[in-house]
């Protein structure tokens, strides 16, 4: 008997929860704010679905209701992707070690 592909996806999902659990516990508490902003950015990989929806229209009618929602979702996710990664970068650039020689 064949196994439904859904079961494989479910396996990936469950195992990823465990990976997430252990990886996040190892994040140092001082970086919890960047953790939130970067998780924000990566969860916007939902843009993949938005792109599929946006490109689904035929060549003579690019804008049907479904693809309009797709386009809007692309913009929303893009705000998050660019905003999330850049603000994380900005924060992480501020975490510096003590300078031993100076001052």
């Amino acid at each position: 008997m064949e196994i439904d592909p859904f079961i494989f996806r479910l396996s990936i999902f469950i195992l990823s929860i465990f990976i997430g659990y252990y990886v996040v516990w190892s994040v140092t508490p001082s970086l919890h704010t960047p953790l939130m902003s970067v998780t924000n950015a990566i969860s916007s990989v939902i843009i993949v679905g938005a792109i599929i929806a946006g490109l689904a229209g035929s060549s003579d009618s690019v804008f049907n209701v479904s693809s309009i929602f797709g386009f809007l979702a692309i913009s929303l996710a893009a705000i998050n992707i660019f905003g999330g990664f850049l603000v994380t970068q900005r924060m992480l650039a501020m975490y510096k070690k003590k300078k031993k020689d100076k001052k």
């Binding site: 929860i17 659990y21 998780t39």
Partner: peptide
């Protein structure tokens, strides 16, 4: 991610959810 059958989205969703 399950709807789109997309691994990247499923993994990310699980990571962010547990985080």
């Amino acid at each position: 991610g399950f709807t789109l059958e997309n691994t990247a989205l499923i993994i990310t969703g699980a990571l962010v959810g547990s985080s």
